[in-house]
Design a protein around this nucleic acid. Structure first.
Lengths: 259, 259
DNA sequence: TAGTGGTCTAGACCACATA
DNA sequence: ATGTGGTCTAGACCACTAC
């Protein structure tokens, strides 16, 4: 940030050196708000200060704060509600529950989705294999929590998931904790571990299950399945979860909107 | 639109009756610009009038036009370029070529993507079966153009596509025309048929190919493939293309960003 | 009634592109 | 030098929410 805040008499660093080093005022404000979100000054679901208050705090006009918040809202980091204020986004919010779940029933049926029946197969602390570590930006052998579970819709096993979480941040995670929690797992991560996932990337393939996977999903080893590898990130593009899912797509499909 | 343009003294309709019937001024302006885009007043790739000109035309402030254009830009309907102006988006633009193609090589290799070798298997005019007609909002038996082709990357057949297009809008489409055209097929649709696809929806499954499909992709019938059904829409949510693809995902994957 | 975000305007200056 | 979009400000009014 080289441009200074308005009433300040601060001088921009003499030689802006190599990088871009410039950014519009509203981007700088956005960065500051982001820092507060990251630091937990306002927690998921909480009201953040009004635009006027933030404008006063940062010594800029309301319009500048507004543009910063506009971008944060576009990235789903905060949620605006007219007449009430701006809230820190949360995976607990009804409107955005299961944001990252793109598997939908073929029948446009009502959200059976939240009603998934979960069966935890396994939940243990292990040393991260090289590939898992790489995807989570950890070192090989670092501790990670590993969870395996099956999600069933209307009694039919449909998703087999393996989840890896950094051991440090998710110390103490148990199968009981996961099964006990109602609602999205990502909401539990916010409440129990203070970790908020803000975006994710998925790589999708078609595969055949091995014998163990097939048995857990109660299908044959010649049933084609969707393989979905997801890396979920918290603030600052820090990866905090690796999830490998196998989706049965005979009664469901992965839905994607292209814009 | 019930709210009036500024200099007018018009009163909002007394009883707002049933519907919403209201929309902010900038939304109305957005709608007017959209109409011009739709009507072809400015064609894909062309410069649209400056914000000041549009403000004068519609008798609103530049800021209001700006907000309208902001939304159009966010929806990829126009593209802003500082210092130059605002352009009608086009699938020909280098930056957004193959926007709708989410299949990427596993090696983060340079865009081999455009370099796909295309082989047209078939291109004919047929009567739409019920399901195809439904997805294209046509009547069963209406004429549609049907294209089948194989895309190969570095010599390896990877995508088998069946494409259906409304016969009326795409009258005269030939295999030669498709193979002759360099660049995205969607760019050709703009140039040759004046049809611009603005968004699309995909449903993805894992499937096994039938004998014919397997042969065209040079794989066995037990090779799991990604089935991607895409409906592409032009302005006003009018469906203009149905595309069913089978993707070989041993060296490629479907990449998706979740926000 | 008071406070919030949402809309609209107007004017100033900046950064970029082109001639 | 000119014109474009990009940023920033300031002030006014509207619509929604809560008390």
């Amino acid at each position: 940030m080289s441009s200074s805040l308005p009433p300040s008499t601060e001088t921009p660093a003499a030689a802006p050196a190599p990088g871009p080093a410039f950014s519009p005022l509203y981007q700088q404000i956005k960065g500051l708000i982001l820092q507060s979100l990251e630091a937990g000054e306002w927690r998921p679901g909480e009201l953040i200060p009004s635009e006027m208050e933030l404008a006063a705090r940062f010594r800029v006009s309301q319009g500048t704060v507004r543009k910063a918040i506009d971008e944060l809202a576009a990235e789903n980091l905060v949620m605006r509600r007219q007449g009430k204020g701006t809230f820190v986004a949360t995976h607990s919010a009804q409107q955005v529950q299961y944001r990252f779940l793109k598997l939908h029933p073929d029948t446009g049926d009502v959200q059976e989705e939240g009603r998934a029946q979960r069966r935890i197969i396994d939940c243990k602390r292990v040393r991260a294999p090289a590939e898992i570590a790489r995807l989570l930006s950890l070192r090989s052998g670092d501790a990670v929590m590993q969870v395996r579970r099956v999600l069933a819709f209307v009694g039919t096993p449909t998703i087999l998931e393996d989840i890896w979480l950094p051991g440090q941040a998710f110390k103490g995670l148990t199968a009981e904790q996961i099964s006990a929690y109602q609602g999205p797992t990502y909401a539990m991560f916010e409440v129990e571990y203070g970790v908020r996932m803000v975006r994710a990337e998925e790589k999708i393939r078609a595969v055949l299950p091995d014998a163990e996977q097939a048995e857990l999903l109660q299908v044959s080893t010649s049933t084609p399945l969707l393989s979905v590898e997801r890396v979920a990130y918290t603030y600052n593009d820090v990866p905090m979860e690796l999830r490998r899912g196998l989706y049965l797509t005979d009664t469901h499909h992965y839905r994607n909107a292209l814009n």
